[in-house]
Design a protein around this nucleic acid. Sequence first.
DNA 1: GTCTATAGCTTGATAGAC
DNA 2: GTCTATCAAGCTATAGAC
Lengths: 186, 186
Amino acid sequence: MPHPKVREDSLLEALQGVFCRHGFEGASLSLIADATGLQRASLYHRFPDGKAGMAVAVLERVLATFGSTVLAPLSKPGDPAARVRQTAKQLGEFYAGGKRSCLLETLSLGAPAPAVRAAVQRALRAAIDAFAAVARECGASPAEAARRAEQALVEVQGALVVARVSGDIKPFERVLKALPERITGD
Amino acid sequence: MPHPKVREDSLLEALQGVFCRHGFEGASLSLIADATGLQRASLYHRFPDGKAGMAVAVLERVLATFGSTVLAPLSKPGDPAARVRQTAKQLGEFYAGGKRSCLLETLSLGAPAPAVRAAVQRALRAAIDAFAAVARECGASPAEAARRAEQALVEVQGALVVARVSGDIKPFERVLKALPERITGD
DNA sequence: GTCTATAGCTTGATAGAC
DNA sequence: GTCTATCAAGCTATAGAC
């Protein structure tokens, strides 16, 4: 593809926005066409598997960028607490300070295609594993590390939902601030 | 209405299930008709405002039953911690042990009608206020009580999302177990 | 690689018989 | 109060020109 009208990256970014705001069933192709600037037929050329293929592609790209930006500090050397603080900061940017919903939530609603479900689960697993690895470094047992990582994910997801419903991002900010101690165990 | 084919209560219960699983945009009238056993036209007779009216009716009914069962222990006399424990137990049943999503989450996705948005916000506010009142009884300042109540809601919502994505209800069970100390402050 | 055009179905909602 | 029948508009997806 020498001259795509819309580059892969901005295409996926626009797709992400729509899936983020409307979920899988709510993301109609008209909405997607408007957001991407491509016609329906062009979208099917880029994503032969249709809407499900678009969702999987978005999830895979998010998993990649999420890993290389948000989760990257977690697997670097240095003080664990400082690394988690850095990741908390990245999380704040990734979710636009709490104003953006998480694809794992929005794309898991309804009856998504099996490929979408699987991609969502992979992404959640990756995030949990990354947090758990840091907790282990802090001396937690495997079971305890998993518990802390899951709790961290629970709080982030919950804060995003509460923020969407209430319009109040303060709970999200508090969750991010408390994130390091949730992982290190104080 | 002397002889409705489907009684108001079971009608709303079926509606709740569909909105719960699919959200507002994903809950099509065909899905709703199948779940309720009524034809589309009959649904419009019962809910002249259409799908938005159905969602609001479900939210109002849930707010009522939620208040009279789940939140009721919170406003009774007696040991605050014991009352929150009772509410945690009720929460577990209300959300089917973590296998059922929360309407506040599913109905806030997409671009719901203003009336739906408002009903969702009212319900969230009622839950937060009920928890905050107990926290105040335990000696928390208004600001601290609000913080604890919001944190409790955040954890419940987050655990339900994680449970839906991963199929693992253990984080939800842990959240319920920790709920009393979240409110009382230990 | 993108487009216009269209197929075929489903959507939310209404009209009117019973 | 529920139904069948229907509407216009929306939907996902495809065909084929450029």
